[in-house]
Amino acid sequence: MFRVSNNLVGVLNLLAFLLSIPILVTGVWLSKQANAECEWWLQRIFIVLGVFLLVVSLAGLVGACCRVSCLLWLYLFVMFLLILLVLSFTIFAFVITNKGAGQVLSNRGYKEYRLGDYSNWFQNRVNNAHNWNRIRSCLRSSKICSQFQTQFANDNLQKFYAENLSSLQSGCCKPSDSCNFEYQGPSVWKKTESGNYSNPDCNAWDNDPNVLCFNCQTCKAGFLQSLKTDWKKVTIVNVIFLIFLIIVYSVGCCAFRNNLRDNWKR
């Protein structure tokens, strides 16, 4: 009879194998549907994850159920590397998301964000011209500022200041409050005649819907705040996934030991 650990590894890897199929199909579907640069990374993640789960789960399934020690050893080796990878990424994510927060403004329902408040690693990513051109293209294609303009189109100045804006809306779709522009609409502001601004974002602002504040430091900071929030959620999932991997790895070690004992008895 198969031992409990072998059966358990087999069941867990069967579930992983079944899970890998819709993940892989989703990645292939996204690769056919993606029409903007925003989605290129997402389809790659799904395809790589789907192929990885498919191969590893098959190795674990055959190794445990058919008592093929070499496959089970390969499975455990890959699992060990995966545990190290997930652990390293989780620690890294905790470190780089530890800095950065929005600044509370007086009599404002929203916050403003400064690029210098975030980790150097994050700053280097968005200060790279190639990276930012791609991100900016994504933000434009997402129409976040078009929706912003429509959502708050009927607001007067006092009501607009009381709105609870997202970090991207605050950083990319309106000028910084320090510019003191004249409000004419959520994404339409009249610059002062002097044009002497201490904040370079004030010069970068343009009422053109394709420009707005997409070239501003506040937009980069708003994007990092949104990214930081997502990374924190991913980190929590990673911790749960890491615990699951350690449990599966421990059970797999027991199954490998059982295989060695059975082979030795033969």
Rank of each mutant, 00 (worst) to 15 (best):
T218D: 10
M1Q: 14
S194I: 10
S198T: 11
L212T: 04
N207A: 10
W132G: 05
S187E: 00
M1K: 14
V4Q: 13
F2V: 12
K190Y: 10
N6V: 08
S142I: 09
S5Q: 14
L12I: 12
G63L: 00
K228C: 04
Y183A: 11
I96S: 09
F92M: 08
R108C: 00
L87I: 09
V78K: 04
W29L: 12
I243N: 08
R136I: 02
N154E: 13
F52N: 02
Y113F: 14
Q184V: 07
L61H: 01
G50T: 01
V68G: 01
S5D: 10
S226E: 03
W264H: 15
S5V: 10
C138G: 11
S57M: 03
Y75L: 09
E182H: 14
G50L: 03
K111H: 04
V48N: 00
A36W: 08
V239E: 02
L15P: 09
A59F: 13
C254L: 12
G50M: 05
T97S: 10
T90Y: 05
I240K: 10
D201K: 06
K232S: 02
V248A: 14
V4R: 13
S167C: 06
S198H: 11
N127P: 07
A204G: 11
D230I: 11
L157T: 14
F160R: 04
N258H: 10
N7L: 13
C65Y: 07
S198I: 03
N131M: 02
A16Y: 13
G109F: 09
T26Y: 12
A36C: 11
L260A: 10
C70K: 12
Y197E: 00
Q169Y: 14
L30C: 10
L58D: 01
L15V: 15
Y249P: 00
W205C: 01
F89K: 07
F241C: 14
Q225C: 01
L71R: 02
T229E: 07
F94M: 08
C145Y: 00
C38H: 13
S226Y: 08
P209D: 04
Q158K: 11
A34F: 07
N263V: 14
V239K: 03
S69H: 10
R114I: 02
I96L: 11
I246H: 09
A204R: 14
L87V: 14
N13M: 04
V248F: 10
E163F: 03
D208Q: 14
A255R: 05
